[in-house]
Amino acid sequence: MLNAKFDLMPESAPSLRSHILVSNHEMRPLAAGALYWEAEDTLLVADLHLEKGAAFAALGMLLPPYDTRTTLERLHKVIRAVTPSRVVALGDSFHRSHLAESLAEDDLAMLIRLQQGREWYWICGNHDPHLPTCIGGTVCTTLTICGVTLRHEPSENGLAREIAGHLHPVARIARRGSVIRRRCFATDGNRLIMPAFGAYAGGLNVLDEAFGSLFLRNQLEAWMMGRADVYPVLGSLLLPG
């Protein structure tokens, strides 16, 4: 009989790749859903959707008001771990622009504390086109670092060298009859779409039409978020839905 342990869980498993190449720059995806660009000491996060709970409450759906706190705490953990000198939020940081002004006092204090000792950029998204100054940081529409453009919505240009958010990619795989669905970093080597970071941000399958022609299909990879690792999965292994 086969040694099951050897057969199914090879101990000499090749180690996972730890870096995504975006236009030949090495980026390290973190299991928390943030991307760390070591060479530039820059941390990227997308689609925080802060105050999404409050936005729903205003419409009569009184969702638990702890989403902003949860998201900020997650962000705090990542920042404490990598201590970047620059943080860029790739848009839809707030679910509604005006809700940034009525952020709860301790949430605002936490946000300001996170910004201390580092550059902080808010890229505008479709949800938060007009961010107020009270939240600190520099507001911009795009930001280009070393030829890589950081923006909220991915551009139409099929070969753009850019990192964007907006689409909340998730990937699904089936393995031995189990289906696993996770937020993911989606990339074809030129472009990278970040997973949504916010506690109440949902997801859209990377094979959905909305991702249409963004990627060179034969080079698509989904880096799926695990507990502590991020797992690179070949595009051809992904399932729709």
């Binding site: 869980m9 498993a13 090749p14 996972l16 790749r17 795989i173 393995r175 031995r176 189990s178 289906v179 696993i180 996770r182 990879e221 799926m224 695990g226 507990r227 690792d229 797992y231 690179p232 999965v233 070949l234 292994l237």
Partner: peptide, 20 residues
Amino acid sequence: ESVPGEASETLLRETAEELI
């Protein structure tokens, strides 16, 4: 009922290894 946790991490790791 599928089991969350280590098992799905194992499956993710396997799929990722297929990439390699």
